[in-house]
Design a protein around this nucleic acid. Structure first.
Lengths: 336, 336
DNA sequence: CTGAAAGCGCTTACAG
DNA sequence: CTGAAAGCGCTTACAG
């Protein structure tokens, strides 16, 4: 009986066609040991002819490396995250890593399932861009997976992380309003005790103090990061006896909502009410008046996260944990 | 000499701890053959205690399935694609598939490298949301990978695809302007011979004819999908002896650019110039006046692509190729 | 410079 | 209902 003809194109088939051993084919592939020029040429020729590609799973099984990093994103439809994804892809690509996307769909509830999936699939690393999931970060770490967190408020953890300086963002935005001559500056921040909201609020308070005023609780409103929330919050602020003349909103969507409320109330922006946001989403430059805001460099954050991840993948046992602080930038347009 | 203690937690370790064979552990895992209740319980207990998870690469090597689908996206920072990604994730998740993201970064030049990577990694399927890459679609197919294309103009190919009805979009948008009483309706379309621009332009021409007018080449401008391009195109249109009173723009960004130019020229929108766009990006509802536009349901496109892909993965050899046409929807705001 | 063989961690005919 | 063994397609000590 003859052997049944081989159907899959594997390293054995290449070896036979080239008249060498599997070992040699493997070494031509990997470059892990010298191969004579003649043999190498012959093998490469055969590989080309057959259009052979090594089986990725077999390689992964041997090396225990998936050459894949996961990105767990809070909400991929929020423009911040696609930009982060692009930066991440661009920085890990050179190490031959590919990005697996997990979109938590605006909720953090899926994060735990995604972490399971990432562990199960033995990804080399994970970038977690979801807030308040410290447990999951540690769980990934215990599973032996490189982890980088994105966001504020992680300084206590033994984890590499990337963030903008949220407190300084709050201070810079508020200071900008003071410097333009505005007083009675209000703020609309994110839900309490959540990042990056907490830091931005703290920065606002710091700036108010720095300009010799006393922070007034009546000027500190809270909303939920949405346009509608910002709109409602501004109406509450305007409803006071001595309404504010300027407002620092902790993100652009709330700032745009505040602008809606201001214009709707017959106020001119910025003459009657100045507004500053944070993020510099596309819409910031599209609304009228164009929104002054603080740009958080999402793509750069993604790139930095990728670089930290590659380091950690290369040396998982490094004792010290790094923190990259990216630079934000005031974009002064017409709303303040 | 004793065996050195096993370090990795594999199926053998579980088998030993449970006092059964690897075969049985494997079958408890897969459910591929009956296992007595007692044995099953014992094995499951051990798996829990050890926190055992089967090695994904070994499983993939056996099954030749990566349980991974790739999304090759033209430009992940364009809000259309994140929404598509979300829809794709949601529909393939139930089949235990995960999404690998390839962002072409606004250029199609990377597509070929991404296709190589997808083939190399033996993904189960690929959604290609990049235009004018027919060769790559066929290359994936030849590699035995399930493929779904997103976009117009693919009706000739033996490929499953999802699209909006771009011609009808052009017709509906233009008809809306006619029905509101506007005449001398211009259009700003995308680069010639590119999809989805071609279809939308054809739809415009059809509507103009349907209302008994003769399409006027002087009213057909071309731009490059950007805000700046739309702005410049509208200035060219306004520069004529008998300028248009309304304009259909083939996407929202160009429409917003046109709005810039109109307002800058002292025209009132929509009284002096009515504008309709396509896409319904976030900014459409944020500009003032709010932009009337045609919503293309990106998330639904992603979901449909995922479903086609799952079908094709399950039955790669199905002879017939499917086409899903998603419904667009006119969103009448204030610009027309 | 090259090869035979063991091993990575699973699955699955085959046998009982 | 259960197990021993071959096999998936690679890599890599070991040997020459």
């Amino acid at each position: 009986m003859e052997n049944t003809p081989r159907v899959t194109l594997n390293i054995q088939a290449v070896a036979e066609a080239a008249g060498v051993s599997k070992t040699t084919v493997s070494h031509v592939l990997s470059g892990n040991r010298p191969v004579s020029a003649a043999t190498r040429r012959k093998v490469e020729r055969v590989m080309d002819d057959l259009d052979y590609r090594p089986n990725f799973f077999a390689q992964a099984l041997n090396s225990n490396k998936s050459q894949t990093v996961a990105l767990i994103a809070q909400d991929i439809t929020n423009p911040f995250y696609p930009a982060l994804a692009r930066g991440l892809q661009s920085s890990v690509a050179e190490a031959n890593q590919v990005v697996m996307l997990f979109d938590a769909g605006a909720g953090a509830s899926l994060t735990s399932a995604f972490v399971d999936e990432a562990i199960q699939r033995r990804v080399d690393g994970v970038v977690v861009a979801v807030s308040n999931v410290e447990d999951e970060l540690l769980r990934l770490q215990r599973a032996g997976i490189a982890v980088v967190a994105v966001g504020s408020g992680l300084s206590g953890l033994p984890i590499d992380w990337v963030s903008a300086d949220d407190e300084l963002i709050g201070t810079d935005a508020t200071r900008h309003l003071f410097e333009r001559g505005y007083r009675r500056i209000a703020t609309i921040s994110g839900p309490p005790a959540s990042e990056p909201g907490g830091g931005r609020l703290a920065g606002y308070v710091k700036a108010v103090n720095a300009f010799g005023e006393t922070p007034d609780p009546a000027l500190c409103e809270v909303a939920d990061w949405t346009r509608e929330g910002g709109e409602a919050a501004l109406y509450r602020l305007l409803d006071q006896d001595d309404p504010p003349r300027a407002v620092f909103c902790a993100n652009d969507l709330m700032a745009i909502g505040a602008m809606d409320a201001a214009l709707e109330s017959g106020l001119r922006v910025p003459q009657d009410l100045a507004i500053v946001g944070v993020d510099d989403i596309d819409a910031a430059g599209l609304v009228r008046p164009a929104l002054s805001t603080i740009r958080v460099p999402a793509e750069e954050i993604g790139r930095a996260a990728g670089e930290l991840l590659l380091h950690r993948i290369a040396d998982g046992s490094a004792r010290s944990h790094r923190h990259v602080l990216v630079q934000h930038k005031l974009i002064a347009r017409h709303s303040a």
